[in-house]
């Protein structure tokens, strides 16, 4: 099923030009900056990063909701034209985060799923029933309104709608993030089952590394519009090499790994309108040196093949991230910044 690559991005960028209130000065916000990757047919690439890193903008550019300001998108080796043809649109569909906002409250769910078919031709009631059945919703439920469904069921309906035009790629933008754990597991399983059955290709945008690990073969980590690490999950998530990936993995609470020490990054995300010189991550990085302020690190391959944008990239096994803290503790004490802590302390009093 997994054949050649289906989707390729080459140097994709989306810059927003913001004019300020006074004067003529204009500022450039690099929401997506020189992003390149490829997804093989039938596989999943997980795109992770925190709010404001540009992951959703990237998803919107791919689905054609906003136009890129540079770079190319190739579908099956063919460049996608900026003004997309109907087939190009059909091939890439999207599922959004909030199932309460993405379904028209006044349309029956049958109509919700039928709408793309009516617009593109090919509507039959049976087709809609089959689409609903595919996501585990009974055809009789089609007469009801979205308000009568729970969050998890609404997300199933949104998936049925996205599948209506037989897309080859689904962009899943935080598609399970708003759901409770037990329901989230149901939807993740549904997505995996659909992928196996129809051979769909996914771009799975999420901030949750554990969910990404479950559903993806590859993962890309974004920070301030750029990819800082990309590679197979078994490399990038099991032995992360970029300090940001290391910090993300270390900070994520996980009941299965209680009592470990974790890396806590200092400070906030920098203002994207005024990014730091050199490496954009250096202001929060525990490895940063002078060199990081001068030179922008290029996304370069490590011996194992995964790519990392860091001058001091070094793969560290996920279970041994705490060992990074030993030299750190001293450095951070000098700077007066609390970086480490023993979690799950004994009761103090």
């Amino acid at each position: 099923m997994s054949g050649g690559e289906l989707l390729r991005l080459e140097g994709l960028e989306k810059h927003f030009i913001l004019s300020r209130g006074l004067g003529w000065s204009r500022r450039r916000l690099r929401a997506v900056d020189n992003v390149s990757f490829a997804i093989p047919a039938g596989q999943t690439l997980g795109l992770v990063g925190e709010s404001g890193c540009g992951k959703s903008t990237l998803g919107r550019v791919l689905v054609g909701l906003i136009a890129p300001t540079g770079g190319r998108i190739l579908l099956d080796g063919q460049p996608v034209s900026p003004a997309r043809s109907q087939t190009e649109r059909r091939h890439i569909q999207m599922v959004f985060q909030d199932p309460y906002a993405s379904l028209d409250p006044r349309m029956t769910i049958h109509e919700v799923v039928a709408e793309p078919l009516r617009i593109n031709g090919g509507y039959t009631p049976e087709r809609v029933d089959a689409l609903l059945a595919q996501v585990g919703i009974a055809a009789e439920a089609g007469r009801r309104l979205p308000a009568q469904f729970s969050g998890g069921q609404r997300q199933r309906i949104a998936i049925a709608r996205a599948l209506a035009l037989d897309p080859r790629i689904l962009i899943l933008d935080e598609a399970v993030s708003a759901l409770d754990v037990s329901i989230q597991a149901q939807i993740v399983n549904l997505l995996r089952e659909l992928q196996r059955r129809i051979g769909l290709t996914y771009l799975f945008i999420s901030h949750d590394l554990s969910v990404v690990r479950h559903i993806s073969q590859q993962v890309a980590v974004m920070y301030l519009g750029r990819i800082v690490e990309i590679g197979p999950c078994a490399q990038a998530l099991d032995s992360p090499a970029h300090p940001y990936t290391q910090a993300l993995l270390s900070a994520a609470p996980d009941p299965r790994r209680r009592g470990r020490r974790r890396i806590v990054l200092a400070g906030d995300l920098p203002n994207p309108l005024d990014p730091p010189s050199g490496c954009v991550f250096r202001t929060r990085c525990f490895k940063a040196t002078e060199r990081c302020a001068r030179e922008v690190p290029a996304l370069a391959p490590l011996p194992d093949g995964r790519q990392v944008a860091c001058h001091y990239a070094e793969a560290v096994d996920r279970t041994r991230l705490a060992e990074l803290l030993v030299p750190l503790t001293r450095a951070s004490q000098d700077a007066g910044i609390p970086i480490t802590k023993e979690t799950h302390k004994e009761d103090p009093k």
Binding site: S150, G152, Q153, D180, V181, S182, I183, Q184, A185, Q186, V188, N189, R192, E193, D208, L209, S210, V211, R213, H214, C233, L237, D238, L249, A252, D254, P255, R256, R318
Partner: peptide, 24 residues
Amino acid sequence: IGLLASLPSLDATGEMLASIPGQP
């Protein structure tokens, strides 16, 4: 037990997630 089993983990991959059937 169901909640813990349906939590995705960085360590367990590849298999389907256990899930609790139905809705609250």
